[in-house]
Simulated assay, not measured.
Amino acid sequence: MSSPEGNVRFFKRLWHLNIQNKIKIFVWKAIHAILPSRHHLASRGVQIDPLCPRCNLSNEHSFHVLWQCPWAKDVWSESALWPMLSRFLGQNFMELWCWTILNGPCDDVGCFAMISWSIWLARNQWVFEGRSMHGREVVSHAGNIWAQFLTSKPVRISNTINEPHLIHWNAPPVGSIKINVDAAVFDDSDFFGVGVIVRDDKGMVLMARAGCLEGVLTPYLAELLAVREGIILAYHLQWTNIIVETDARNVVEYIRHPNALAPEASIIAFIRRLMLQTSGLTITITITFCRSFANKAAHELASFGLRNLVDVDYKDCCPFYLSSFVRSDFTYDL
């Protein structure tokens, strides 16, 4: 691996991460091996034992603290990144950073930075306060810090589960578009269905999609992927005011309060990132919850896609098998 200065694109990735600036600076210092570790301080003339205070097996330099120390390895083994990181054979933190970027999904890089930061905080807690944290605690701490940072950003997510009028489908406000999404899962199938239906403020169908994707998923994860499909569609349609509606209450809550280290964290982060990207434009995307009775049309589309193992898009028309559900929704809305 070349010197840090030669890896411009890897540094660009650092400065564009959706994390606190102080953590970006911390990672930059770790890459350049200038964290105030015992080895670094001793090399600068400070009278201090350079050995790692945890393991006493090696000098405590940046790479040792964050990766080589057996305690640090215990922390990483508790994270969702371990299957990818366990294959790393490099010799410094810059190589570890580049390995993560090249071998992990986009959101793994932010997760890596957060855990590295938490390892350093736990190290300081041990050195200066004599208090120790288990690996799982460190990983959980990293997830909580990142979740708090992400949820502090202005994302419009409305949870309307207590509004009785949403027992039936309601048309969106004048000038708005509503996208209902749902998923269908069969116990004996290796596929799951996704249904998306787009309607205007008069209840007219502008677009519909019956899809089928491969994978044996829990209903929650299937519903989350259905929401992702709706958000992607909303992002590309570029209407001014768009409501994405799902009958999966837990999906709305997890998007509202994400856990950055949960297995589905990358999907939720992708959804939130798309929503944040529209905030600078004249587009507003809102996610809301509705009762399952108000989401029958989207469910029928998802079931159709799964039953027939097809991916079908309908533009400016309503498929025949959906017409009774759309008429029923339109009647209730009136």
Results as ranks from 00 to 15, higher is better:
Cys106Asn: 07
Phe320Arg: 11
Leu150Arg: 05
Asn170His: 12
Gln238Pro: 04
His32Gln: 13
Phe88Asp: 03
Val312Phe: 11
Thr284Asp: 06
Thr240Val: 04
Leu166Ile: 09
Gly215Gln: 07
His165Leu: 05
Phe325Tyr: 15
Trp82Arg: 06
Gln20Met: 06
Ala33Trp: 01
Ile232Gly: 03
Asp190Ile: 10
Phe63Asp: 03
Ile34Pro: 08
Met114Arg: 01
His39Gln: 12
Val312Met: 11
Asp247Ala: 01
Phe330Ile: 14
Ser266Trp: 11
Phe304Lys: 02
Asn241Cys: 11
Met204Cys: 10
Asn21Leu: 12
Leu225Asn: 05
Ala33Cys: 05
Asp200Pro: 07
Pro105Thr: 08
Lys29Ile: 08
Cys52Phe: 10
Phe289Asp: 00
Lys202His: 11
Gly45Met: 07
His16Pro: 00
Asn162Pro: 00
Ser2Gly: 10
Gly195Leu: 02
Leu334Cys: 10
Gly193Met: 10
Leu51Thr: 03
Pro164Trp: 14
Lys24Gln: 11
Gln277Lys: 07
Ile285Glu: 02
Trp117Ile: 01
Ser116Asp: 02
Trp169Ser: 00
Arg13Tyr: 15
Ser323His: 03
Tyr254Asn: 11
Gly230Leu: 09
Gly110Lys: 04
Gly215Trp: 14
Val216Tyr: 15
Phe325Thr: 01
Ala184Leu: 09
Ile271Val: 13
Glu264Pro: 03
Ala234Ser: 12
Arg199Cys: 07
Ala269Met: 08
Gln91Ile: 15
Ala142Phe: 10
Ala265Ser: 15
Gly90Arg: 01
Ala72Leu: 12
Leu276Arg: 08
Ser58Leu: 12
Phe304Leu: 04
Phe270Ala: 03
Arg13Cys: 13
Arg131Trp: 10
Pro4His: 08
Pro83Gly: 04
Ser292Pro: 02
Cys317Lys: 05
Thr278Met: 13
Ile177Val: 15
Ile48Val: 14
Met133Phe: 13
Arg38Val: 06
Glu229Pro: 05
Ser3His: 09
Thr284His: 00
His39Lys: 14
Trp117Phe: 14
Asp313Tyr: 13
Leu322Cys: 06
Tyr220Ile: 05
Ala171Glu: 00
Ala297Glu: 05
Leu281Phe: 15
Phe26Lys: 06
Phe325Gln: 02
Ala113Ile: 07
His64Gln: 07
Ser132Phe: 15
Phe191Asn: 06
Ile48Phe: 05
Glu223Phe: 13
Leu96Thr: 04
Ala265Cys: 14
Gly215His: 08
Ile167Trp: 10
Ser176Tyr: 13
Leu225Thr: 03
Ala42Ser: 14
Leu102Pro: 03
Val310Gly: 02
Leu309Gly: 02
Tyr235Asn: 04
Ile197His: 00
Phe304Tyr: 14
Ile243Val: 14
Arg9Leu: 13
Arg249Lys: 15
Asp188Val: 09
Ile285Tyr: 01
Asn308Pro: 07
His236Gln: 12
Val185Trp: 06
Trp67Phe: 15
Arg209Pro: 00
Tyr314Trp: 15
Thr278Gln: 10
Arg273Asn: 05
Ser2Met: 06
Gly280Lys: 03
Met1Tyr: 04
Asn21Met: 11
Tyr314Asn: 00
Cys317Thr: 10
Gly203His: 09
Ser176Val: 09
Asn308Glu: 12
Phe293Arg: 06
Val109Cys: 08
Asn92His: 07
Val227Trp: 08
Leu121Ser: 07
Cys106Asp: 02
Ala248Gly: 04
Asp108Asn: 12
His141Arg: 15
Ser132Met: 11
Val244Leu: 08
Trp97Met: 07
Ser324Thr: 09
Ser118His: 09
Ala147Tyr: 10
Asp108Lys: 12
Ser2Asp: 10
Phe88Trp: 13
